[in-house]
Amino acid sequence: METEDILAIFKFSAQERKILSSFGIQEDVFLPLLLSLKSGGSWSYAAEESRSIAVKDVTTYYDEENKAGYTLEEIYLFIDPEILKQEGSVYRLEKCGRKGERELVIRPYRMILKARKIVLAQVDPGKKKIFIREIEKKKISLKGTPAYSAAHELEHLEKGEVRGLPLWNFEYIP
């Protein structure tokens, strides 16, 4: 690794610590957000005193005329999340990082989550900026992929392990 890369990592880490401490919340609850930023996906964290999940939503903005665009990532960090409402049933294959294969699970299509605090990080790769702030709302409505991801992470918090029907229970049809 080059010296300039190491210095950039130190600078980024210092900015990260400063912004996280500005929220006045124990820093370990930010782990799902940091993992989502650095590794992608949605994540969960549980300790005796608090729980948190990070749920990622993406929107691609594309200019047909210029043939260029970017994908904005919005990562919601829910601190002490609770499900207020779930609606619908979607059969889907998911793979959890702890398992080698995908499994069939049933997830809600829509979900309303409430949390003690909600932090939103918007990652704009076009500008190379991460905008992060606590939002006023204490409940958020999710649908589609963000709802599936939230249900998956909440299952981790409640049951520890996500369980579904392994892929080898499917049959090939020629």
Rank of each mutant, 00 (worst) to 15 (best):
F12G: 04
A14Q: 13
A14S: 12
A14F: 07
A14P: 00
Q15W: 02
E16L: 15
I19T: 13
I19V: 15
L20E: 03
L20G: 01
L20D: 00
S21D: 11
S21Y: 01
S22T: 11
I25W: 05
Q26K: 15
E27D: 10
E27I: 15
V29P: 04
L31A: 08
L31D: 07
P32M: 10
L34T: 13
L34D: 04
L34M: 14
L35V: 06
S36Y: 07
S36R: 06
S39E: 15
S39M: 15
S39V: 10
S39K: 15
G40E: 09
G40V: 05
G41N: 08
G41K: 11
G41Q: 11
W43S: 00
A46F: 03
E49S: 15
E49R: 14
S50I: 10
S50H: 14
S52M: 00
S52W: 02
A54R: 08
A54G: 08
V55D: 04
V55Y: 03
K56G: 01
K56A: 06
D57I: 04
V58C: 09
T59A: 12
T60P: 01
T60F: 01
Y61R: 07
Y62W: 15
D63T: 05
E64V: 08
E65D: 13
N66Y: 12
K67A: 11
A68I: 10
A68P: 00
A68N: 12
G69I: 05
Y70I: 06
Y70M: 11
Y70V: 03
Y70H: 13
Y70E: 12
T71Y: 06
T71H: 11
T71K: 11
L72E: 13
L77S: 05
F78Y: 08
I79N: 03
D80M: 04
P81R: 07
P81Q: 08
E82N: 12
L84R: 11
L84C: 08
L84H: 02
K85M: 14
Q86F: 05
E87M: 06
G88I: 08
S89K: 13
V90Q: 05
V90P: 00
Y91I: 11
L93V: 12
C96R: 08
C96V: 15
G97D: 13
R98N: 13
K99S: 14
G100V: 00
R102L: 02
E103F: 07
V105M: 07
V105R: 09
I106L: 05
P108I: 10
Y109E: 15
R110A: 09
R110H: 09
I112H: 01
I112W: 01
I112D: 11
L113T: 02
L113S: 01
L113M: 09
K114Y: 07
A115I: 02
R116P: 00
K117C: 03
I118F: 01
L120K: 13
A121Y: 00
P125Y: 03
P125T: 09
G126A: 07
G126T: 01
K127H: 08
K127E: 15
I130G: 04
F131L: 12
I132N: 03
I135Q: 04
I135F: 04
E136D: 13
E136K: 14
K137I: 05
K137S: 15
K139S: 13
I140H: 01
S141W: 09
K143R: 12
P146Q: 02
P146R: 00
P146Y: 05
A147N: 03
A147P: 02
A147V: 07
S149W: 12
A150P: 02
A150V: 06
A151P: 02
E153R: 02
E153Y: 00
H156F: 12
H156P: 09
H156G: 11
